[in-house]
Nucleic acid binder design. Sequence first.
DNA 1: GACCTGCTGCGGCTTG
Length: 831
Amino acid sequence: MQLKETIGYKTIVTWMAADGRQPFAFQEEAWQYILEGRSGLVNAPTGCGKTFSVFLGAVIDFINRHPDDYRTRGGNGLQLLWISPLRALAKDIGRAMEEVLAGLGMRWQVGTRNGDTDPAERARQKRKMPEVLIITPESLHLLLAQKNYPEVFKVLKVVAVDEWHELLGSKRGVQVELALARILGTRGGSGVSIIGISATIGNLEQAGEVLLASMHRGEGGFIVRAVIHKPIEVESIFPDEIEKYPWSGHLGLKLIHKVIPIIMSSRTTLIFINTRGMSETWYQSLLNICPDLAGAIALHHGSIDMELRTWVEEALHEGKLKAVVCTASLDLGVDFRPVETVIQVGSPKGVARFLQRAGRSGHQPGQVSKIWFLPTHSLELMEAAALKSAMQEGLIESREPMLLSFDVLIQFLSTLAISDGFYADELFRELKQTYCYSEMTEEEWREILHFITEGGEALHQYDEYRKVELMEGGLYKINSRRVAMRHRLHIGTIVSEPMLKVRWVSGGYVGVIEEYFISRMEPGETFTLAGRNLELVMIKDMTVLVRKSNARKSRVPSWNGGRMPLSANLGMMLRRKLDEAGLMLRAMLEGEEPVVDIELRVLQPLFELQAALSYMPRENELLIEQIETRDGYHLFVYPFEGRLVHEAMAALLAYRMSRITPISFSFAMNDYGFELLSDQPIPLDDANVYELFSPDNLTADIQRSVNSAEMARRKFRDIAVIGGLIFQGYPGEYAKARHLQSSAGLLFNVFAEYDPNNLLIRQAYNEVMEQQMEEQRLRNMLERVSRGQMVLRWPKQLTPFCFPLKVDSMREDLSSEKLEDRVRRMQAQLR
DNA sequence: GACCTGCTGCGGCTTG
């Protein structure tokens, strides 16, 4: 349009120049679209001003509309709604926005709205909304739970969804879809544009589609892609003698001494560890081998008290700390706090996550990002090579949007019912426009309405499940204040394990611990949290009281976190690297000097042993090893598809073989493969192997092979909580795990008996198939395998590939010391 | 329902 001529553009460019900022081409492109009132997605690497560009777009638009008085106006109503997945980010972004506005001499107010917004501020916002409101998806739904909420959006121009890639693929993303549909609904679908901000993902187009599904169709959204190439350097940390490095394990402490010089030679370092428990161990070990680091390093993970974490972030930022050992808790949120060096310990499981972490260093345009990779076992070194190639080829994972999440919908309906209520037909049309619910049938819709008003087939006898009233005139409404209040307490889709707070006897919080873990400890025993050894004094008022302990022995807690399997992209790349390694061995036999990744070269002795004892599979081959030991008959398979697929595959294979001959197995699996162990010979050979791995009848066979009812029962807990079927108690109240589990179990039974087709039960089964079994990926794998070659081998002894699986399956029977001894003996025998 | 390596993220209290 007339961007260049307006006062707004000139003002802003002048202002940016004075501030030493350079406008990027993609920013101007984004501004242009926003000025035209279009919707779309802005994609750029972190740290080059995505946020800035979208914010300025909205500002320029306003200036253009009010060129004469933009400096003096106030009380314009909500112009820009900024949705952010992190409340911690809200403050940072708000401050940055205020700075920009001050620079432009604009009188806009920036407000935040999330869990810690003080009630007085909320009341003020009710009277007068700031021009910019930064909000989380959950708080946005709380806003929709307020009477007269459409008033809030009356003059809204732009909704920005920050970090959309983080929300997409989760139920929080569905919440955003629902809120957007409703906001557009209040405006008759016009006058508001939606701008998503996203890092690069494999399905960017689809991400845009999901976000904009509720916009009037026909007009495709724009996608602005910043072509800013960020050089990334990956350097592996090698053991001195690869022959002596462990073949299994996940901790990686054997290489800790190589980390010290890296920390020392760098101003600030982040050390990413995969789990909270292991990060505690790493922190302690760093201090043990290098006491000089005391006071200069810190620990950061999701179960450490927020105050402490904030302090760590600040101290790192100010250069008071040299290094922080952390989990994914530092993946996001420190956008404005770059570090010099990043170390990744163990597999990052996916290309996108690795890229993200690498990007934490050299976080300025033009700088090189550098990341060190520390393998926790020998074979893991291959991942460094795979990650490098995957990054070069831009093989970033996709985020699959969720479909038909009825639990989130049921929650949403209650949200609307406690504010202004809704009319069924009108809302149905609106929902059908969202991506998540576009396939919802009228029958399902009627079932949902029946469920929220009458408790459905199974629960109609219980008053507490008849929440919503159908009023005269067709309005669905919740009139009970009690129900409304309870509902407000339960808005959100994140369901966590029951945790207890950990507090010093003398006051001050340390963090949180799982009820399950602490329930098995006695007063006087010691555990580790936030890098400290703590003696359990007592459990009182839902709080674990502790004092400092000098005990040498301390238990490191385990938290029951999510299990992130190796991504499909990284798995594919690993198979390719294995292929390259095989070619390397062959070429070297011919006396050539092949050019390969240094990691593969270092692993050469291991690969040679694998080739000698068994086989090095090509990319289109699936290696199956059968080995007899005194433990029994083992079958090892290596699809490199991540542990969830392997788990399902192991069960499937066991089931299919048991149809040939009655046989029972025990399983073990990791991200590279799985093991079946039996006390009788395993009926798998060249004649039947293709049939056993056939994709035919997959769904039916899977359902027969696993205890899907039990898995669905567990999934159902979260669904029941999100759908509002289980009241978890008032804030701070100790929600007993057993209570939660049993009420979910009870409900599941009631449904199974009286209403087995209930759509929440169906959803539980679907989630098991999609998330637990990764059915699509399993199917892809079987199809790939059936197109390729199966290679069966009968090694005389354990191979480098099967070793970690074998160790895993032994773990249950042996104490950790005994296990370590035995592993050492086993590995020595092989050399 | 357990821990076999298993992350992160949010929200909320009433009352005549």
